[in-house]
Amino acid sequence: MSYDEEVLEVLKAAGLDILSCMHCGTCTGSCPSGRHAGLNTRRILRDARKNRPVLEDKDLWLCTTCYTCQERCPRGIKITDALLEIRRLAVRKGFMLPEHRRVSEMVLEYGHAVPLDEETRKKREELGLDPLPNTAQHSPEALEQVRALLRTCRFDELTAEK
């Protein structure tokens, strides 16, 4: 099976039916990313249906997951959920933006996608807060738990440069 045939399989397994689409264009027309950044949601779904390549399509990552299309689709297609499912397959096949790899590395290293920096540490002090927040980043035990959990999920392997 080619990668792109797998897309429909994966969607089917997740109970996401995109075959009932009636091409009304409501999804693309409602899409903030469609209006301002050229994302064509309907086209991605059509390509997926026709086994055309979508996994390496960079547009897949232009969806802000705002759920507007999913709310408005007259056929009740779970469009956003389907896009997320396709993204996850893309990642399993090694298609991932370098910026997204970096976000993953942050969580692997600090337990946070946006870790504390020196500037914010000072801001915390100015406000009279503890300079170190009471979160995983500053509890060695909690941080080790998070890292162990990520290793169990093989998240480090999944997101490593391939």
Partner: peptide
């Protein structure tokens, strides 16, 4: 406080990467 809490993890990215994680 909820001590030792990590990233939620951010839905937009992590839910796009791996459901189990």
């Amino acid at each position: 406080d909820l001590p030792g809490a990590s990233c939620c993890p951010a839905p937009g990215v992590f839910k796009s990467f791996d459901k189990g994680t």
